Simulated assay, not measured.
Amino acid sequence: MTCAHFVLSLICLLSIAQVSSSLHQETRLISVNVGDSVTLQCLYDDDDDGNPLFFWYKQSLRQEPKLISIHYSFDRKGTFHDEFKDNRRFTLKNEKYSLILTIYDVQVSDSATYYCAKSINSYSLEFSEGTTVFVKDTNSLFIALVQQSDSETIHSGDSVTLKCTASTGSCDGEPSVYWFKNSEDHHPSLIYTQSDNSDQCERKTNKTQTCVYNLSLNNLDQSNAGTYYCAVTVCGRIVFGNGTKLELKEH
């Protein structure tokens, strides 16, 4: 499992980056329909860093991060960059200790992970955890089915392989697979992305194919307990499995 496979691959791409304890995006996953609006919020601490620069970045799967905006802590509106400049679908707001990015009339191309970042000098760039936005095209005729086993019983030190079977229609582009974990102590979080064809796929007809995607977990302990969801995105749609619950049992 290489660094590029993780949603935090942004940090691998930028050698000066680090995860910040003073920035926080409470919502880790948002699913919306085409045409909806979505609001991303980044909370930051009141500290003695002077006048730090704040940024919003967009990272689509298998693409380098794109700079959306930049502004100072005292700047209410900020400045958009490149393709986001003069795009009325995007707005910025800087409230007290809160950076807010709103995207209106969302499109399938807005599906990505959005990070806020802070820089207090030219040698460091601190990132939040990021929020992944999935945009669903409800007008698509595409049909997909994602199946998972209901539960698995594990013991400390065990290993387990979670299986996700996805039957998808045929369209341009390869399916991408995401694994999420949800537990009582944490919000749902994206833990792994998979966009290659290394798993076994079988084409049933000219219009459909079935693929099996696996997630291997080793040396398990209590922190691994929770429900793991498989989600497949293809043809502008996202389809979630029903989730596999991992329950830890004492020997």
Rank of each mutant, 00 (worst) to 15 (best):
D105F: 02
V108S: 02
F142C: 12
Y123G: 12
T113M: 15
T138G: 03
K96V: 10
N121Q: 11
Y97F: 13
E126R: 06
S128H: 12
I103R: 01
Q148I: 02
S122R: 14
Y97E: 09
V108Y: 00
I103P: 02
K118W: 01
S109E: 08
A112G: 09
S119N: 03
I103N: 02
S111R: 01
L125T: 05
F127L: 15
I143L: 14
T113N: 13
V133G: 05
T102I: 01
G130M: 13
L125W: 05
L125M: 11
Y123R: 15
N121C: 14
L99D: 07
T138K: 09
G130N: 11
S140Y: 03
E126D: 11
S128E: 15
T138W: 00
K96E: 10
V133H: 04
Q107S: 02
Q107V: 00
L125R: 01
L145S: 13
I100V: 14
E129Y: 12
F127T: 07
D105W: 01
E129T: 14
A117R: 09
I100A: 04
L101D: 04
D110P: 08
A117Q: 13
T138R: 09
T131R: 10
S119P: 03
Y123D: 15
T131E: 11
F142W: 05
Y115L: 15
Q148E: 10
D110R: 06
S122N: 12
S119F: 05
I143H: 12
Y123I: 13
S128P: 14
T138F: 04
Q107A: 04
S98R: 12
Y104N: 14
V135Q: 01
F127P: 10
A117M: 14
V146I: 06
Q147T: 07
D137P: 06
V146H: 00
I103G: 02
S140I: 05
V133F: 06
S111V: 00
V108A: 04
I103W: 03
I103V: 08
S111C: 01
T102R: 08
K96Q: 10
V133Q: 06
N139H: 08
I100N: 06
I143S: 12
Q148K: 01
L99Y: 06
K136I: 04
V133P: 05
Q147I: 09
Y97I: 02
Y123W: 14
A117P: 13
C116M: 09
I100Q: 08
F127V: 10
K118S: 09
V108Q: 04
L125F: 06
C116P: 09
I143A: 10
E129K: 14
L125Y: 03
Q148D: 02
S98K: 13
S111E: 02
T131Y: 10
V108P: 03
Y104D: 12
K96H: 09
D137N: 14
S140C: 01
T132H: 12
V106D: 00
V135L: 01
D105R: 05
S122L: 14
Y115G: 11
V106F: 00
K136H: 10
Y104P: 00
Y115H: 15
C116S: 09
K136P: 00
L99W: 04
Y115T: 11
L99H: 07
T113P: 11
